[in-house]
Design a protein around this nucleic acid. Structure first.
Lengths: 153, 153
DNA sequence: CCTTTGACTTCAAGTACTTGAAGTTCCTAC
DNA sequence: GTAGGAACTTCAAGTACTTGAAGTCAAAGG
């Protein structure tokens, strides 16, 4: 709506909110060299993140979300630095990551279904609706069976 | 299709697949008392999980997925033991957990969008399609702006 | 100018898994 | 029955954060 470029720097708190990584983890990643040292405020020691830092951190957050070790992340990030020559290779890495994130998303989805079923169950119990409680229990069994099939493939 | 009750026991590997928790974590949770000791095979030392164990572990997995400490999980699990008297309380706990899982799911979703955008970008670059690359970059900026709005609320 | 409030800083210690080594058990196949 | 391989077991050591204490800095109000 207004200017295309809104703001160009972020505090650690804003960065944490945008990347989904806790501030403590942002500092930790910097301390062990997963990301390059972040520039500091002119008259303060506070970290000042720019758009490019945000971008790198989003990528790191994606990698961390699927259980990649910090050593491996360091590798990936430094590899990412060398120009656009390796576009195909980049795409391969990204595609792999997409798959891993999909698995992670499925785990969360299963847990959400589980919690919703449990809520339904207890609501039925509370309402004394035995029939509905049993229906929910049988749905729970269906969920378990689906899981068995999904994970067996 | 066949009998309503399929199988009543599971190995640690099956349990890991169904709950989404690594086998090492299942053993760890048992060792520190987050879950009660699992019964062992008649002639082996191997753990044998039953449906009830599975149910408890799904709940623990839900709690762990949102960063709950093992101390707190221990609390929640033992609380869950005392009968259906506290249905309302159970529902409250479950609803809270549902909210936390939703946040977690959003984090993952954002990361998926990020990775997909990056793939689009590199594919455009690879194809020499500068116009498309720029369009994708602008979409990335839109994503960032959306994040800012979402997290600020 | 001074104080307060809240967000930031570092560094050390704690927590939550994870991995590896070394050994046992299960299962299938001869 | 016994050989081989996969899957299990325990336990100790490592990794990846996380938390807490103690102090610094920025902005707002008196």
């Amino acid at each position: 709506m207004s200017a295309p470029t809104t703001q160009h720097t972020y505090t650690i708190k804003e960065t944490a909110a945008l990347t989904g990584l806790p501030a403590s983890t942002l500092r930790y990643y910097e301390s062990i060299g997963v990301i390059a040292p972040i520039s500091r405020g002119a008259s303060s020691k506070h970290r000042v993140y720019d758009e490019e830092d945000l971008d790198r951190l989003m990528w790191v957050a994606c990698l961390a979300a699927t259980g990649m070790s910090v050593g491996a992340m360091r590798q990936y990030v430094t590899n990412g630095q060398r120009g656009p020559a390796a576009a195909a290779e980049q795409i391969e890495l990204l595609a792999e990551q997409e798959r891993r994130l999909a698995v992670e998303a499925q785990h969360i989805a299963v847990r959400q279904r589980y919690v919703r079923l449990k809520i339904d169950y207890w609501q039925a119990v509370e309402a004394g609706d035995t029939a509905r409680a049993e229906r929910v229990s049988s749905e729970a069994r269906t969920l378990a069976d689906q899981l068995k099939r999904t994970t067996k493939q």
